[in-house]
Design a protein around this nucleic acid. Structure first.
Lengths: 335, 335
DNA sequence: TGCATATGTGTAAGAGCTTACATTTTAAAA
DNA sequence: TTTTAAAATGTAAGCTCTTACACATATGCA
């Protein structure tokens, strides 16, 4: 639309050189205050907006970071994106978002595409990027050869890759232990993937059992789709399980278990204890309100951004940071 | 890290001119297939990635659109962002995201900031941008002077501004009418803002009453915070209202009403009918499952992107598109 | 074979900034 | 007042592409 004013126009109107205008734009200290003011006035009057492309061309950095997440409609990731975006913006960074989907190949493609854009760093959100069982994560290492990669709730070994993780292992260990203390002996482990964090959680569940001399019952390890009704339906097909507790790796799954209980006339928390994960809004909307793990998404994101800033300043940072979670007790674990 | 290969390197290695390389990058039709292949091979071997800044500088368009939404942790907006991003990417467009917050001044600032980036179009997500009562929306018009502005579920009169809206008026009119048919005479209207869409919904509520010769009871017009427990708490302070139905402008509010009913021993749907809005996951997690309006977010987003593409092709498009919603009946309105 | 088109490729001029270096102005010291 | 250093400003090269235009080669047809 129309002709855009550029640095030459401003220079001419203000009676200075383009270098001076550029210096004013970048708030360089060695410009006379009067000149600065004069140029600023002209810029405002003419609605001057520096062309970001031209600026980027003449510089080595970009002030943008790429955000990739499998699904932004997931409450946990949405909050993470919001938090990262806000904090990055405070530092003057733009966010380019790419929702990849959960598929292996889609994730790889997403990372490839976003790398083509000029970005100063890449942030991968969610444990789904951590590889899980034997998923190939070499594309993440390749990305890290170009720019630093920060993984929120994930980690892949490698140069220039930084993981910021919740202590999912400990969180589930503690929750499981609590159910064990309350006398539960058939605790369902309800997950929806074999992501890195799901594996950590599983390990917490298993170790809690082991350390209390209890057997790990494989029939109680159930993997479902991450939808409330999908979970309910799948549990309805397995009424034989006769579990007395549930550790779910997502709140949605826990709510599904609650619906299952409702449908079969089992009372919660009297007959079954249920623990969710993520402390999402779902955990309040259900009945009874869900005991759930606060996975500290905000803190993870804050740490990631702080680390990034530190790194870009040329300092060293830890390649792995682990942050403690805590259990939010509501009413599905009233013993 | 290290030195980046540029178009000159590729041209030299492939034995062609940089113009040809550029044409290959842009998949221009008038390059010989053999040449194309040869150049592509060299590009791959050397991991060539065109510098987006230089590209942007030499062109009038950018292949990026700015997305501004008040809060991405809102389920409706998260889904919208995901949907827009996916579709825009299919057309080769990047998305620069900016979560503004709900504050008037923050929204204006967000739009201002994102305009400084080079983007081909701006998409404002959510009715919160539509101005509501007497909020100043001149900054949207100003933005539209530079690039087309698409408003998802909002509208502001102006050149180069395009609104794609759900028919909130009709949706609420119909839902209200249904409650009226079921004999409800004290229907609570539960909202959390005076945004454009909230006003449309209110109008639907009022007109349904008017057209059936029923009075509009002002004490039943309640504005709360959009949190489940906030809503519950506020309703608990107004036990005198004695309503027999609820029309909520968000699912969260409806769930809050459900919690209120639970807390006070009122049974749903027997004593109170409840209708939510947006068909979010919350509407399934609660008990009983919520009857809610599907506001057709996906369709709105698809339409917005399609319109944008049409516009950028130089064709004309409607400045306002309205899309019908439909009611998803679950169990809070079993009569 | 020769001429008119169509197709493919190259040349060079931008696009709008940043910044090293050169130059001028100002201020401080002698 | 002159000298010297510091501060302010200007000049011009460079960043990596796109694309109008020019030119060369290939194709079709008489």
């Amino acid at each position: 639309m129309g002709v855009r004013v550029n640095i030459y126009d401003i220079a001419k109107l203000a009676g200075v050189s383009i270098a001076t205008v550029s210096r004013v734009v970048n708030d360089s200290p060695n410009v006379n205050d009067k000149t600065k003011e004069k140029v600023r006035k002209v810029m405002e009057e003419n609605h001057y907006m520096p062309n970001e492309f031209a600026r980027g061309l003449g510089r080595s950095f970009v002030k943008a970071v790429g955000l990739v997440c499998p699904a932004i409609s997931d409450d946990y990731m949405a909050k993470a994106v919001a938090c990262l975006e806000k904090r990055l913006r405070e530092h003057g960074y733009d966010c380019i978002l790419h929702c990849s989907g959960y598929d292996k190949e889609d994730k790889r493609q997403a990372v490839g595409m976003i790398l083509k854009k000029r970005i100063d760093a890449l942030m991968l959100i969610g444990s789904n990027f951590a590889g899980g069982k034997e998923e190939d994560t070499s594309y993440i290492c390749e990305a890290a050869r170009q720019i630093p990669v920060f993984m929120i709730n994930g980690y892949v070994e490698g140069e220039n890759i930084y993981g910021i993780l919740a202590d999912d292992y400990q969180a589930v260990y503690d929750a499981t232990e609590e159910l064990i203390f309350a006398g539960k002996r058939r605790i369902l482990f309800l997950s929806n993937s074999d992501s890195f964090s799901a594996m950590q959680k599983r390990k917490g569940y298993e170790d809690a059992h082991k350390n209390h001399g209890l057997p790990i019952l494989e029939e109680l390890n159930i993997c479902v789709e991450n939808t409330i009704n999908g979970t309910k339906d799948q549990l309805l097909l397995r009424r034989d399980l006769a579990f007395d507790g549930v550790i779910a790796t997502e709140d949605g799954l826990a709510v599904g278990a609650l619906k299952y209980a409702k449908a079969t006339g089992i009372s919660v928390p009297e007959e079954i204890s249920v623990v969710g994960y993520n402390n999402s809004e779902l955990s309040i909307s259900c009945e009874p309100e869900l005991t759930t793990v606060d996975a500290r998404g905000e803190i993870l994101c804050k740490t990631a951004v702080d680390s990034m800033m530190t790194l870009l300043e040329g300092k060293r940072i830890n390649s792995k940071t682990i942050i403690k979670c805590h259990l939010v007790k509501r009413h599905t674990t009233d013993f």
